[in-house]
Simulated assay, not measured.
Amino acid sequence: MDSYLFYTSFMTIFEALKISRKKLSDAGIESASLDASLILSHLTHLSKVQLITHDSDELSDDILNKLNSLIDKRITGYPIAYILGYKEFWGLKLKVTEDTLIPRPDTEIIVQCALDCKVKGSILDMGTGSGAIILALKSEYRDNVEAFACDFSEKALEVAKENSKALDLEVTFIHSDWFSNLVDKKFSLIVSNPPYIEENDPHLTKTSLPYEPISALTSGADGLNDIRIICRNALAHLKTDAPLMIEHGYNQGPSVRDIFVSYGYKNVETVIDFAGNDRVTVGYKR
């Protein structure tokens, strides 16, 4: 192995970044350069720009040891968001842990769909995880809506509550297995990014998915069990003409539309994501 792949004492930021990027790249990490910068920025509390302007500064042994440990962890495929402890979504900095899914850019599609409806009243995010969707909506709607969110995982709810407090966005969080603890509450909008991956999908062993909570990823043999539950039970909690919006897999649009129609929703349509794939299906209670 080349000598520059080892960290040594009296190493500068420039040298440490060079080694880190090389190690990540050799391990097949596609975002090697960015991840190395993010990790070192996290450890030094320097911005990515400051890493450049201070590239001749020497790093302490403590930081170098931590850098080495985190780079090795990233090489295993461990998600950069979990290493940093946060993920940006809709311009919001959200805490994430292994108890929550990592928010994806495509999930911003459901946020935009919900904003396009220009609803007022109460809105609900089902299976909120880190709180990404409901906090994004509350940040835009502000006092025009009363925001609610539920999740079966108490640990995920704790993370969502922390994000709500840190962002000063008021949301009522409810521990609930889908609608079980919502009593007779009715909403002007219900959104959800539920588990929708097939149980034996090969993607579960790739990228960051092996490190994310499996209960928030898979939903039966066809991945649609939870979507069926939500579509069926949302009818009792939606106001007349109120929309239900559900994120799903790129190849599930036709099946999800069929589920919506089978439960009597009207004006059912699917919205595509940034890559042109089916991503969010919308239907309105009759």
Rank of each mutant, 00 (worst) to 15 (best):
L169H: 02
Y4D: 09
N65R: 12
L115I: 14
I75W: 11
K165F: 08
E162W: 09
S180G: 05
L5S: 08
A275I: 04
A234I: 00
I83D: 13
G28T: 07
E162S: 11
L70Q: 10
S139F: 01
S176P: 12
P103L: 11
K165T: 12
E108S: 06
D241H: 08
T100W: 07
C150W: 00
D2F: 07
S122I: 03
T12A: 06
I80V: 15
G276H: 04
K285P: 15
L43K: 10
L43T: 09
I272N: 06
V271G: 00
I197V: 13
M11S: 04
A221R: 14
G77D: 08
K186N: 12
L43W: 05
E158L: 13
T240A: 10
I227V: 05
K22M: 15
E98N: 12
M11D: 02
H203Q: 11
E15L: 14
T207C: 10
E15I: 05
A275P: 03
S122P: 02
K22H: 15
E108R: 12
Y78D: 04
D106T: 08
A234N: 02
F179M: 13
L17P: 08
G91S: 04
G121Y: 04
A32K: 09
S33N: 08
S31W: 05
D62G: 05
D26T: 09
R142Q: 06
Y284P: 11
Y78E: 06
G131W: 00
D125C: 02
L167H: 02
T172N: 15
Y284N: 04
V96R: 14
L217Y: 12
E199R: 11
K161R: 12
Y78K: 15
A166N: 11
V111K: 04
I13M: 02
T76R: 11
S41L: 10
E199P: 04
I83K: 03
K155Y: 13
F274D: 14
D35R: 14
A16T: 10
V171I: 15
I63R: 03
L244H: 13
A16D: 03
G253M: 00
L167V: 05
L235M: 13
Y196Q: 03
K23N: 14
I259Q: 00
K87T: 05
P105Y: 13
A32M: 06
T281M: 01
E199M: 07
E170V: 09
A275Y: 08
D35K: 10
I227F: 02
E158Q: 11
T281V: 01
E170A: 09
S208G: 07
